[in-house]
């Protein structure tokens, strides 16, 4: 095959040094987080309110000795991560809407790094929110018994869960097409913790619901955190928890990459 090669009339700008895109986009997303406090307040206030509600309103009926807070905190932490990560879907969808993603795509950069920025800032935002939730929990009677190593393991698992669910929300944001739709789809996912062992033990549920609650990803993650911090039996829950997180992460990253390319050839 012969091709007519035209003379080059310009030399392309060199590729950026490794990490420049990522650092720039992480900085951008962190500024976004600080300047849109509603997302941060939502990520912290809602779970705290739910925790107080469950502890003081339902808690007495569930366990009258006031120990319910020890049961419910791990679930609240995951709920909190879900709320916080959901705003990533909206952020990503908005980048597509405003056209700034198109501008990034015409520049000699790895525009995929835009997503890395959103994901890392979500991770930071959610770990801060998790810290606040744990602090309030301790103030209302949460008495964890884990040692430092168990705490580190629990926080690492929470971090992994946040990472996986944030990537999932980023992919949802790419798929949604508009920030309103992204918000709507994201809302559905936030109900997952209710159908798990987060608020009541699975064996108190009707049989058909038990099957769902027992086999969905949230339950083993919660049981692992509970095992580490409250010394409940761990069993094979940690392996299941890690497996689920890894699976969600892989699916979300692959789906995100496909959606990213599809949106690229959209028009």
């Amino acid at each position: 095959m012969t091709t007519i090669s035209l003379p080059r009339t310009a030399v392309p700008r060199p590729r950026l040094a490794l990490g420049t895109e990522e650092a720039t986009f992480i900085a951008r997303s962190l500024i976004h987080t600080i300047r849109t406090p509603d997302a941060l307040i939502m990520a912290v206030a809602l779970p705290v309110m739910l925790m107080l509600m469950f502890t003081f309103i339902f808690g007495g009926a569930i366990e009258s000795d006031g120990s319910y807070v020890n049961y419910v905190v791990p679930g609240i932490i995951l709920l909190c991560a879900g709320f916080g990560a959901a705003s990533t879907a909206v952020d990503v969808a908005r980048d597509l809407e405003t056209g700034i993603m198109d501008r990034f795509r015409t520049m000699r950069i790895r525009s995929w790094a835009v997503l890395t920025g959103h994901v890392v800032s979500s991770l930071v935002r959610n770990l801060v929110a998790t810290g606040v939730v744990i602090g309030v929990a301790v103030a209302v009677g949460f008495r964890p018994v884990g040692n430092p190593a168990e705490w580190i393991a629990a926080i690492a698992l929470i971090g992994l869960y946040i990472l996986a669910i944030t990537y999932l929300y980023a992919a949802i944001g790419l798929a949604a097409g508009s920030s309103e739709a992204a918000n709507g789809y994201g809302f559905i996912l936030m109900f997952a913790p209710y159908l798990s062992s987060a608020f009541v033990p699975v064996d108190t549920m009707p049989t058909w619901l038990q099957w769902i609650a027992q086999n969905q990803p949230i339950t083993p993650i919660i049981e692992t955190i509970r095992g580490l911090l409250m010394h409940t039996p761990l069993g094979n829950e940690p392996a299941l928890a890690l497996g689920w997180c890894a699976l969600i992460l892989v699916i979300a990253v692959v789906w995100g990459a496909i959606m990213f390319r599809r949106k690229a050839g959209r028009r």
Binding site: V11, R28, T98, I100, D102, T106, R108
Partner: peptide
């Protein structure tokens, strides 16, 4: 496309700027 991106600048129809910054 990599090299093309290295030699062009584009201002499209919608203002592609970051509103929060």
């Amino acid at each position: 496309p990599e090299s093309v991106r290295g030699v062009i600048g584009l201002t499209g129809q919608s203002a592609a700027v970051d509103e929060v910054l």
